[in-house]
């Protein structure tokens, strides 16, 4: 026991386990960049009466420039989303079968365990119980995941309507664009507000992770984190004898630098955005 402490203390071979593969990481980066692109170019019209909005719109290339950025980002984001869905189903059909996708620790589908976890997590918050033992996907991660799905349909759908109004009006009545405008704006506020505060806190800014959890950029989770944060997954890997197979190399330096720079920029852009929204709503 003493020897392990010594080796860890000496900074020797820290073990890492694979959590996200390369495609997931690239997709998250694209999602992140296009999301921020849409947020920054979409906020000025939503807060058009604010002085900062006028300046920001000018900075982002004026009407045509900002609209182009917004639409390119939206198109890339929708593509990434569709590729992800295709990939999840392809993997299910090709290798694992549908069941692990729909149920169990590898599924993103909400399950009774998530309800217990929410309950127990709140109890822990209030000091009335131990910290829940989480598995591969926590309930807040599932919420983030499905929020993207919901947002993609609702913002993406309304956005496409507003992008191609004459095409949609072939079948839909014109007042649908009034509805689409409301949905697009309100849901955008929800998404931006949620990602730039709640997701940032849950994923990066809470004391255990501060200032940033690099796992989404490196794809690798350090052994101690896996044991502490996701004990059920660790236990399962040990029981199933898959721990060694999941072990991987240490994160490459460039992914760490990339994560810190791009992720850091995202946190700064996001926080600024939230400040501007709050200022505008209060003002």
């Amino acid at each position: 026991m003493a020897s392990t402490v010594q080796t860890a203390g000496a900074g020797a071979a820290q073990k890492y386990y694979r959590r996200f593969d390369r495609v997931d990481r690239v997709m998250h980066s694209l999602l992140m960049i296009t999301f921020i692109g849409c947020a920054l170019t979409g906020l000025p019209p939503l807060f058009s009466h604010q002085e900062w909005a006028v300046k920001m719109a000018r900075l982002l290339g004026g009407f045509s420039g900002a609209a182009l950025i917004h639409r390119v980002c939206a198109a890339v984001m929708i593509t990434v989303f569709l590729l992800h869905v295709v990939r999840v189903f392809a993997r299910a059909f090709a290798t694992t079968g549908l069941k692990p996708m729909l149920w169990g620790p590898h599924s993103m589908v909400p399950q009774p365990q998530d309800a217990y976890d929410i309950w127990n997590h709140f109890k822990w918050f209030l000091g009335k119980g131990p910290r829940p033992q989480f598995d591969r996907w926590t309930y807040w991660e599932k919420f983030d995941y499905w929020a993207v799905f919901w947002g993609m349909f609702i913002i993406g759908g309304s956005g496409l309507m507003l992008w191609f109004p004459t095409a949609f009006s072939v079948v839909l009545p014109g007042w649908i664009f009034n509805v689409a405008t409301v949905i697009h704006g309100e849901e955008a506020l929800l998404a931006v507000g949620f990602i730039f505060t709640i997701h940032f806190f849950n994923g990066h800014l809470r004391p255990e992770k501060f200032p940033m959890d690099l796992v989404i950029f490196t794809g690798r989770i350090p052994e101690h984190e896996l044991k502490e944060e996701r004990p059920n997954e660790y236990r399962r890997l040990v029981e199933q004898g898959r721990l060694a197979a999941t072990e991987t190399t240490a994160p490459t330096p460039w992914t760490k630098v990339y994560g810190r720079v791009v992720g850091g920029a995202a946190v700064i852009a996001g926080t600024l955005t939230v400040v501007m929204i709050v200022y505008s709503v209060v003002h």
């Binding site: 709140f122 918050f125 409301v182 309100e186 507000g193 709640i198």
Partner: peptide, 27 residues
């Protein structure tokens, strides 16, 4: 739709706002 969106926003931010504040406090 406008009413639903308002309730949705208020609900999500109220739940996760509380969630975040309590978590920060406990951590």
């Amino acid at each position: 739709t406008a009413l639903f969106m308002q309730v949705l926003l208020a609900g999500v931010f109220a739940f996760f706002g509380l969630h975040t504040v309590l978590w920060l406090y406990r951590s």
